[in-house]
């Protein structure tokens, strides 16, 4: 009986470690999966599978754990979309778009990591009023462009341009940093 237990359970220090990894990585991975699949429940399952993949790596050594987890989630998302395609539960064009977006990130990094989203928050607050106000109304108050236009007494097109400009400014700010951090992250085996 005791022997069975020993076989069943990871040793204490190892499970502490595993929990630590899990808690650190879960939210960004979940967020990452949500970029490509709409349902939160599906995203959760896909992330779970990625962590189980760690245990399934028998003899193989995992070189970069972060990359391994992201790659697992990536593959799981693609497989899931493929499954949707087969089942025809979803519009083909949208599946195509999501799949294409996933592959884009094979060579480009996203802002999923915690430090980036905090930096982004700061950067948003530093935007000039003209861009910040419509962007925030749009993103945080979830107002329609028309509603923002009315509030700010501006044409809708202007509001759209300002929201766009806000994002372009943010993009310039992050572009170089983000791209260098994880370069080679998804390098294929």
């Amino acid at each position: 009986m005791d022997e069975d237990r020993e076989k069943y359970n990871l040793k204490e220090s190892q499970s502490v470690l595993l929990e630590h990894i899990f808690r650190q990585m879960y939210a960004p991975l979940f967020f990452y999966a949500l970029k490509f699949v709409e349902s939160e429940e599906v995203a959760k399952d896909l992330v779970q599978d990625a962590f189980l993949n760690i245990l399934k790596q028998k003899e193989k050594k995992i070189d970069n754990l972060k990359a391994f987890l992201y790659r697992s989630v990536r593959n799981n998302c693609l497989n899931y979309l493929e499954h949707l395609r087969v089942e025809r539960e979803f519009k083909a064009a949208e599946i195509e778009r999501s799949a294409r977006e996933i592959q884009f990130y094979d060579t480009h990094q996203t802002l999923v990591e915690k430090e980036w989203q905090q930096g982004l928050k700061k950067a948003v607050d530093e935007l000039p009023d003209k861009y910040r106000i419509p962007f925030k109304m749009s993103r945080f108050e979830e107002l329609k462009n028309k509603e923002i236009a009315e509030k700010l007494h501006l044409p809708v097109r202007t509001v759209e341009t300002q929201i766009y400009r806000a994002m372009v400014i943010l993009r310039e700010k992050f572009k170089n940093k983000v791209l260098t951090l994880f370069l080679g992250f998804f390098s294929k085996k």
Binding site: T110, R139, V168
Partner: peptide, 8 residues
């Protein structure tokens, strides 16, 4: 832009 939009 989508990334920034979502990350916000």
């Amino acid at each position: 832009l989508k990334d920034i939009w979502e990350t916000a």
